[in-house]
Design a protein around this nucleic acid. Structure first.
Lengths: 221, 221, 221, 221
DNA sequence: CATGAATGAGGATTCATTCAT
DNA sequence: CATGAATGAATCCTCATTCAT
């Protein structure tokens, strides 16, 4: 086995709920209802897959939960695999967008990373990254390349910020960007978040502050 | 939906090959052969599941690889799920053992953590954690509790070391143990390891040194 | 099991394109357009079924090719099966017509058969019989009787010509009409035609001459 | 669409019951029972496919008729398509064998053809060719080549006999072998046989005599 | 009438598990 | 005990047909 993606673990965690941002192709009622139903399908699929895992989630059950016929699912997603992909992809895109905003943020490299942490830890990406289905990672075939591309872009963006910090003498030059970026991403660990914020009643702000502190201290020159 | 385990990610990574340490219940030839066969089964299952994922690994293929009849598998493991569990559990136990050795190690809290990093990054736990099957995590049901118990013990052990460090004024008292332990465990990220050591030709020692530096700096007072 | 039709093979081969001969029931524009659309549907259905076979031809694809909605198909044909029947029936009718013309042809029984061979081997019937969908034969249920009726008429007509020839002392009296008629029909074997004329570059005229020679010699007194 | 095989029509007709000739790999009871069951499966498949056509025959129904579980079918035939192929192939092989015996038969070319007619019209090939499923022809993919190969051999064998007859001055030299062979094969038309022998109470011998007469007269010099 | 979205029955195939030998 | 043949539940996907708009 080869690790399909440097970032496999996170990929698994990325699906979830920011469907509202999808563009409607037509303003017609029909089209709006179609879009709405697609959201319900995605929600149902997400819920069930998170509970049971991809392989134990049947198209039947998804359709049942949404209250539509099985065949209707296939009007929206040609394959079960496509449905799963539609769950994952927008989350990655949103994260990439945040990375780009962080790069454009007016401040030091450290501030940029904190900005990114804050933005994504509060955003849809992270909220839904919280509950992931590890099963999913073994599913994508045709889409793996597209996913890998997105991940590479995300890593690249973070790398640029790290370079900036190294040039400014803020970050330890000995550490390879790749490792630093990887560990940064690991800060978004949803299980840790769950444990601390939801179960231990730590505030989200405190959580982010702690995470930022550990990470930034860890990499500083 | 409930998160099956705080530690889901690691669970996935824990299975792998140190079956030889299992205790033989009887010295009889029959029993010894039985034990031996069980190891072969576990090895075969591990190999195939790592290559194809849990759900795409069939009992047929495992039996074939071992060279026994499919029915014989069921003399060892009542269910496919049990077989998977038998893959994961010893790895967790070994890790727990290492944690206990680290605690007993003669040195500062920091040295203990470095000891643990070095031990496990070179040990069977980590070696096999490297190539994990994300599929697995969605499988356990009956066994989840037992796994959670082991994980709690591991966390507890690391927490004791962290407490020691805090009392000695080495570690940041503001950070909760749980978070610190979690992030320590995240240092074992197999994807990062693969990326850096296997693909980028970084030596294992350098990798561990970097990881330790970032982590220990991050949590120091 | 019952053989659906004595003449199953030929049935399969009979559909094809002479829809233009269908009578329009009304002269109204609407009705004319309706008729026209029906022809397009039949053409499209024929094309696709010949390419893919009945069972692999979907109503969707037919509608798409015509450029109408799937539902509209059902305004013309209540079932897929009916559509297929509408493909086959006119070919049989045309053949029957040719048989009747052959009977009325001014000449010996032999000349009548040659007339029929020439007419149909050049006609729409045969042209489209050339490329048939064997799938079709397993489809008809309700319509089987109607088809059987047409076939019986065709056989009857050929039988009359054969009787004529026997009475004139031209044909072997020992051979039953049914067998002779059957073998005559077999002369229209589209696979043989394809093989000889299209693949081996034999001229259509030579082909007909050979076929007529073998058949007429075979049955002569 | 291109005609997949010169001989497509006949292919469809060739499946049926001479399974008893299959070689048993082991003499064990188990293996014998396995073979026996395979025959039952083939019989059931044949019966149902002849009644309903390939596409309307479900694996469920075949299993039901045999009285085994659906999964058991797949121990014998990996795909529905394979099952169909297993129905067709032995018939072609037997026919080919008969052709070779006819070539070796001690007599004139005409007598050889008569020998072949008699042998096959009484043999399993023809008996089961009687009831064919035209649906089948649209099914084979992987196997089409093998089938085409067999057919080419059959045609080649018949062609040799025809050459012999031409050289001996018995057959019309103007007629191409291919056409003659094709028309000879058409003499085996199962629908004609059914009509004459089963429905019209003609004896098999008379039927063969008539067929031979028409064909041999037709092609004679 | 025309549309095409929605339906859901139907069917092939897989594979964990059982059990007679 | 060991076997591996037999099972049948489970599941994805297709597509003819219906019907609200």
């Amino acid at each position: 086995m080869t690790i399909k993606s440097l970032f496999e673990y996170q990929i698994q965690n990325l699906f979830g709920g920011a469907y509202k941002y999808m563009v409607q192709r037509k303003g017609s009622l029909k089209e709006r209802q179609r879009q709405e139903r697609e959201q319900y399908i995605l929600q149902a699929a997400e819920e069930i897959m998170l509970e049971k895992g991809y392989h134990h989630t049947s198209m039947d059950e998804i359709a049942d939960r949404v209250g539509i016929a099985k065949g209707t699912l296939y009007l929206h997603f040609t394959r079960k695999e496509e449905l799963a992909y539609a769950l994952v992809e927008p989350k990655l895109n949103m994260f990439l967008e945040s990375v780009q905003q962080a790069r454009a943020y007016n401040g030091t490299a450290q501030e940029k990373l904190i900005y990114l942490l804050e933005k994504e830890m509060s955003g849809a990406f992270f909220q839904f990254m919280l509950r992931s289905d590890p099963d999913l990672a073994s599913v994508f075939k045709a889409q793996q390349q597209r996913i890998d591309g997105l991940i590479a872009e995300i890593f690249g963006g973070i790398g640029k910020i790290l370079d900036e910090g190294k040039e400014a003498g803020l970050f330890d030059r000995e550490l390879p960007n790749e490792m630093m970026a990887f560990q940064f991403i690991n800060m978004f660990d949803p299980h840790l978040y769950l444990k601390m914020v939801e179960q231990q009643q730590m505030s989200k702000e405190t959580f982010i502050r702690h995470v930022a502190k550990v990470y930034l201290r860890g990499i500083e020159r």
